[in-house]
């Protein structure tokens, strides 16, 4: 009997062992053909001009950059991961990528950051779930002289050498311009935002409102917060339409918000009568843009975010001075350009 037990224990250990060795192999990234395509600077996109990414890894060659992200499962984060992997392959550096299962797991993300620091990477890229919660570990990184690159949303600290993110103010401003043009520069519009506390919620709202100040005949009748939840956003949108029968346009500040607006327009029979402008992508939004229910949307450049954070990390390892923020660019897309390769590369389902 004792023997059976020992065999059992050994079997368990063996399962663990084989599973590890199988998975521990560094993923061989696909050829970096269209990695990090530089967004073309035109009126329909916004891109960073101040930062020139490195073409050569220099002293960083072969070193490891640890990326701790906000997630791993979502399509947006998969795109960020791909951008980072392709850029790392291109420059000849190693990268590791980890993220918690959902965006409430603040403590779990801190553990991941701690584990990443254990490996003494040459640099760390960190997208904080809570920009104020990581102080202790950032100090640890500083103590070990590991440069930290913030990405996606800012880290509330002076330690990161730069922050790689979308200029949401400019992006939401572009959405406002587009919507203003659609409604002939006059009339009532409303905004549904995911929340009023996160960096992205605040900057997208403020960017939209600021641009609309340049259009004196347009009135923003309501700004509501729907937690990025389809159903809640839909209910809010319906309430706004009831209160403003002459509403001409909606702006949804993230995927969940615009999806809710689209549901509300459908349920009230207003599809095509009220212009809807959205953010990011996702299947529902892509379908709506293709069939005309949604007039267009801003997309960020998740692949570019991944690529640029690797770029910035390489520069930081080489001791280069980096700008305080690196804009990863954004695009306006609608029915006319949704199939362009540049746009397709940054959309996700």
């Amino acid at each position: 009997m004792k023997l059976t037990r020992i065999i059992g224990l050994a079997a368990t250990a063996a399962i663990v062992a084989s599973a590890c060795s199988g998975a521990a192999v560094t993923p061989t990234a696909a050829p970096a053909t269209q990695a990090a395509s530089q967004p073309a600077a035109s009126s329909d996109s916004g891109a960073a001009s101040a930062y020139t990414p490195p073409t050569d890894a220099g002293a960083a060659k072969g070193k490891t950059i640890a990326i701790v992200s906000k997630g791993e499962q979502h399509a947006f984060w998969q795109a960020v991961k791909k951008g980072a992997q392709d850029e790392a392959t291109k420059l000849g550096v190693q990268e590791t990528y980890q993220g918690p299962a959902n965006e409430t797991m603040v403590n779990d993300q801190l553990t991941m950051l701690q584990n990443a620091l254990t490996n003494n990477p040459a640099a760390v890229c960190f997208a904080a779930l809570d920009s104020k919660a990581a102080g202790d570990l950032l100090n640890q990184a500083k103590g070990k002289n590991i440069p930290v690159v913030g990405f996606d949303s800012g880290v509330d600290s002076t330690i990161p050498v730069t922050t790689v993110a979308t200029d949401n103010i400019a992006a939401a401003g572009l959405a406002a311009q587009k919507l203003a043009a659609m409604i002939g520069d006059s009339g009532k519009v409303a905004v549904i935002v995911h929340d009023q506390t996160s960096q992205t919620g605040i900057t997208r709202r403020d960017g939209f409102v600021a641009e609309m100040k340049n259009h004196p005949n347009i009135q923003i009748v309501s700004i509501q917060y729907g937690a990025g939840d389809h159903q809640k956003s839909a209910d809010l949108a319906k309430g706004i339409m009831t209160a403003n029968p002459d509403l001409k346009g909606f702006f949804g500040a993230n995927e969940g918000s615009i999806d809710g607006i689209l549901d509300a327009l459908k349920e009230t029979g207003n599809t095509g009568k009220i212009f809807a402008v959205g953010y990011d992508s996702g299947q529902q939004q892509l379908d709506a843009i293709n069939n005309g229910a949604e007039a267009g949307a801003i997309t960020q450049n998740p692949i570019g975010i991944g690529a640029k954070c690797v770029d910035a990390a390489v520069d930081a390892i080489n001791g280069k001075t980096l700008p305080k923020t690196i804009d990863t660019g954004f695009y306006w897309y609608d029915k006319t350009n949704i199939n362009d390769p540049t746009i397709q590369a940054v959309l996700y389902k």
Binding site: A24, T111, N115, T118, N119
Partner: peptide, 15 residues
Amino acid sequence: TLSTGLSVDNVPQQF
């Protein structure tokens, strides 16, 4: 130990 070990060894979360 398991989760730290796998994480330090860069085994993806799903594994």
